[in-house]
Design a protein around this nucleic acid. Structure first.
Lengths: 214, 214
DNA sequence: GTCTATAGACCGATAGAC
DNA sequence: GTCTATCGGTCTATAGAC
């Protein structure tokens, strides 16, 4: 990651060589992060071992530590990637849509990610992991940007009357974020009575419409 | 536990002695379970060590294994206790209330338990733990009874029009259960802007009323 | 004196780190 | 590929009850 930002200007060092090395690093790092992401989604942080990551990528465990100094940093890198994907998704949304629909689209994206087994699950407890995440600027920046975007839509949606004005915006934001680790998805999927699309539609409905009849 | 069910009739063995030993065992078992429950709520299963449990109870680790054959069984015992508390709470509810209010009362109870730091948090991943739980009759029985009770109220609430009839009852049940590990509580509490009672009221509202304006 | 339960050392495995 | 720490689980010497 830092190799790219610290790379010398193209005029000083032949761009092809630097770009090649950088590409190599980037490609392998991406493979690592993808493996970490998948394993985090499948087993969670605690049950994921660094050996499994190395095995899945097909490299030596020691090579992992050339890229990431600890298991916590591996998880953080996966979260950074998720944030980048989230930002990319948000950037691709049509900006003329209703704020409520933007929010629903975002939640739908998170639910889809979770059902696809690509949503990392980190334990809320575990102080070392939290410390690493809080100290990761890329992650925090991504989280802040996403939160700002969503927060803006929330306020707009409350202003236009589509979201309950009496709810604190931060509650709405947290409630949306919580869908990223909603166990209801897993339960419903395990029941086998509904397709993925139905599961998503149901959870979206309970999230925005609630359980009460209208 | 089996000592009591296998105890000889009072006429054969002095009841005081048996009762004393049994009481000792029961009291200590309860202390163990209480400690496990607290540690499970505070740190989660993976970060809880049996040494910590022994230290908190004030007994030797080996003594723990006189009562429970494994760490997983410790967690299961804590869950059994939670289920018993849930059943006791349900039994204490006025049976003339509206089904919707019964459900809300139950969710409120779960949220209160969580805020009090008494709701064990178990990792959904972790096959050995799941195996132990599935094999624990007391836990399964408790879960089934609670689910039957809630399921009955859900159907009644849908029949009387207070809960959305288009939602599968099992979705409603899972959505209620999910409040037991809702990260929104933790987030809101960390924000420090709301009292516990406000947090509970807000989460209850989003759960039943949703985020949309009515 | 015997028997049980305890305390605390101890072991083996596993996983993170280098 | 090794080193070390940690943790789940066991073993043994001992203290205290009867």
């Amino acid at each position: 990651m830092s190799t790219r930002t610290l790379a010398a200007p193209a005029a000083v060092i032949p761009p092809a060589k630097v770009s090649f090395k950088a590409q190599m690093l980037a490609v392998r790092e991406d493979a690592i992060i993808q493996a970490v992401n998948r394993l985090l989604a499948e087993k969670g942080f605690d049950l994921m071992t660094v050996d499994q990551v190395a095995a899945e990528v097909g490299i030596a465990k020691a090579s992992l530590y050339k890229h990431f100094p600890s298991k916590e940093d591996l998880a953080a890198a996966a979260m950074v990637r998720v944030m980048q994907r989230a930002q990319a998704f948000l950037a691709g949304l049509p900006d003329h849509a209703r704020p409520l629909d933007q929010l629903k689209a975002m939640v739908r994206w998170m639910l889809t990610l979770q059902l696809a087994g690509e949503m990392p699950s980190l334990p809320h407890h575990n102080s070392s992991l939290r410390t690493t995440l809080v100290g990761n600027k890329a992650y925090l920046d991504g989280l802040m940007q996403v939160s700002d975007q969503l927060g803006g839509w929330i306020e707009k949606a409350q202003a236009d009357g589509s979201i309950n004005k009496s709810l604190p915006p931060v509650l709405v934001l947290y409630t949306l974020y919580a869908r990223a680790c909603d166990p209801v998805l897993e339960f419903l999927k395990a029941g086998g009575q509904h397709s993925d699309e139905e599961v998503i539609a149901l959870v979206l409905q309970t999230c925005f419409e609630g359980l009460n009849a209208r």
